[in-house]
Design a binder for these strands. Structure first.
Length: 224
DNA sequence: AACCAGGACGTGA
DNA sequence: TCACGTCATGGT
């Protein structure tokens, strides 16, 4: 791939979309997981909250583990900000245990539940989210994008691996620099951003495993 | 049986 | 600012 013909984010997005199709993030228990092509979710305040706590629970953790935690919470009717805020911390830890880091994450969920209630249904700003203990940049952006349909670009470890491999930036580049670059070079459409992040995750799972670090993927090989 | 997953925080330098 | 260590379960 020549430097003079560096692919644009928009081209890479189209490439990934045509390869993998719509991903249907964020998965919700009500709709039995993913909902490709349907951008109408979340439809309720409860679904918004489910996405928020899912974003926290999935920090450095496989989604399959998070699902178990969410199912446990649903069983005790605890995918609810008020319920989580006042429920016994030990009970909360037990429910989310499959998601790992359950001591920290139980505290994070309680902190977020308090914040969520104080929002009174309003959309949080990125700055507000970042003040919440346990919500970092990636989690904040995931919440804005998938719970509130705001067109932000979510930077995760996969993004760094793939796009540093493609020559866009260094692996340890600043989070906000990466985010700004993509947001300035993509349409301000939440659907595009929702799909793009999900597609990056899918592509990384396919081509950036331990054995192959993107060597045989169509993005690094294609020249146009 | 190490290694890592849809990170964030606390600490010391 | 930044480079580490810590947190923890479950799948490969």
């Amino acid at each position: 791939m020549g430097e003079l013909q560096m692919k644009t984010p928009a081209k890479i997005y189209k490439c990934l979309f045509s390869e993998y199709g719509a991903q249907g993030w964020w998965p919700l228990l009500d709709v039995k997981g993913y909902h490709p092509g349907d951008y109408s979710f979340p439809k309720t305040k409860k679904q918004i909250f489910e996405i928020c706590i899912g974003a926290i629970l999935t920090q450095n953790t496989a989604w399959t583990n998070v699902e178990k935690a969410l199912v446990n919470l649903k069983k005790i009717n605890a995918i609810d900000s008020g319920k989580i805020l006042k429920m016994d911390i030990a009970k909360l830890k037990k429910a989310i245990k499959p998601a790992g880091y359950y001591n920290q994450k139980a505290k994070k969920l309680k902190e977020f539940a308090k914040f969520f209630i104080e929002l009174k249904g309003k959309t949080p700003t990125r700055e507000q989210l970042l003040k919440v203990w346990g919500v970092g940049k990636e989690t904040a952006d995931s919440i804005l994008l998938y719970a509130y349909k705001i067109p932000v670009f979510v930077v995760d470890a996969y993004t760094r691996r793939i796009f540093s491999k493609l020559g866009f930036f260094k692996k340890d580049a600043d989070y906000d620099e990466i985010r700004n670059f993509f947001e300035e070079n993509l349409p301000k459409d939440f659907k595009v951003h929702q799909e793009f992040h999900a597609l990056i995750v899918e592509h990384a799972k396919q081509h950036y495993t331990k054995k192959s670090n993107g060597e045989n993927c169509f993005l690094t090989n294609v020249h146009s």
